[in-house]
Amino acid sequence: MHEMSLCESVVEILNSEARRQGFARVKTVWLEIGVLSGAEPEAMRFCFDAVTKGSLADGARLEIVQTEGQAWCLNCAKTVAVVQRFDACPECGGFQLQITGGDALRVRELEVE
C-alpha cells in the first residue's frame, strides 16, 4: 500500500503550496495517475481520505485524471498505445517497447480558498 505514502506526499505538496501561494484550505485536488504508474486510483481515494483528515485538505474532493499508456516501438519506430507493461506492440506484436507516457503521478491543479 504505497498509496498511503503517495497521499502523504500529496499533503506535503499541498502544505508547501499553501505557504507559497497563500491559501488556507483545499477544496478539490486534481491528480493525474498514469495507468502505468503503479498506483491504483481506488486505493488512492481510500488513502486520500484517511491522510487528509485534520489537514488543510480535510474533506476535500479528489478528482482523478487517468492518462493512457504510451510506448515507443523499436520495430515500428513509432509511438503506440499500451494498457499494461507486458503488452505487445499492437502493430507488430513485438516486445521491443519503451514506455514513454502514462507513468506519471502528478498533482495538477487545486481548488483552494
Binding site: V10, I13, E17, Q21, F23, V107, E109, V112
Partner: peptide, 8 residues
Amino acid sequence: MVRIEQDI
C-alpha cells in the same frame, strides 16, 4: 483555482 503540476 491553482495550477501546480508537481510530481508526487
